[in-house]
Design a protein around this nucleic acid. Structure first.
Length: 260
DNA sequence: ATGGTGGGTTCCCCA
């Protein structure tokens, strides 16, 4: 099973490059974040015509939104309302083979990395705390993908020292993410294939003059598995070229092949 | 120290 996760930054604005990605990589399952579309306006016909008959979507107006579309039947789907804010930030799909795939869009957290003065940063930390508590009780063999908005390792950012006070790489978030990982023993599939200290990014700001030459990226997107699925991934690729396509997302897709 | 770009919605917010 080939799974791709991609923060698409509006699915309706990116149909051309979604089709390009599908044509070039033929994923069995595509997990999108920041779809920015209400459920009744989701481009169902587009995905149906490309063979993605099974779709689990959780959208809202303007912001956030996740969608998991699949060629493989989905047994059951559900969304968890993290921090009881009614945000569309999670969709889970269960496969006949027994695994559950969780698609997440973790809050970005605003600019100021201080929960006392920045409600968005406080929300991000609370969201991670709830994910930690939830991870402790997980029993299904699980795959967790998505835009987690944290680059945990010094080599997950272009300049560790310069980003220590920049939301996405602050010690408080990195520690919270490590606590989350330890709560379930989450296995980092991406870093298993490209170990640190090699630099690896999945996001580059729109604001850079020449994103590729400057290469001031961060690894904000992740693919994790339960410990029991540690050996199940046979290949992984960050599709960096997609960041240079026409009218791109600011995130690159991550493609993982599983032995089931 | 600052502003740079892009999407969605509404005359501004968020990333």
């Amino acid at each position: 099973m080939r799974v791709i996760t991609w923060n698409i930054n509006s699915v309706r604005a990116r149909l051309a490059i979604v089709e390009q990605l599908i044509n070039e990589t033929s994923p069995d399952m595509l997990c999108l974040q920041e779809t920015k579309v209400q459920d009744h306006m989701f481009p169902h016909d587009f995905f149906e015509s490309l063979g993605y008959k099974y779709r689990a979507i959780k959208g809202q107006k303007s912001h956030h939104g996740v969608a998991t579309v699949s060629k493989i039947p989905l047994q059951e789907t559900y969304s968890i309302d993290w921090c009881t804010k009614g945000d569309a930030r999670h969709i889970a799909v269960m496969l006949a083979t027994g695994q559950t795939v969780h698609n997440f869009y973790v809050p970005a957290g605003g600019d100021e990395p201080n929960p006392d003065v920045n409600d968005k940063f406080a929300h991000k930390l609370k969201f991670l705390d709830e994910m930690t508590a939830w991870s402790k009780g997980l029993t299904d063999p699980s795959i967790l993908v998505g835009d987690l908005n944290i680059a945990p390792d010094p080599n997950d950012v272009w300049d560790h020292k310069k980003l220590l006070k920049v939301v996405s790489h602050t010690p408080i978030e990195v520690d919270a993410m490590q606590t989350l990982i330890d709560a379930h023993g989450w296995h980092d599939v991406v870093r298993a294939f490209v170990p640190t200290p090699e630099k690896l990014f999945s996001w580059w700001s729109y604001r850079a003059r020449d994103w590729s030459a400057a290469d001031k990226g961060r690894r904000l997107d992740h693919v994790w598995t339960s410990p029991c699925l540690k050996g199940a991934a046979s290949a992984m690729q960050v599709i960096r070229s997609a960041r240079g396509w026409e009218k791109p997302s600011d995130h690159a897709p991550i493609c993982v092949d599983f032995d089931f």
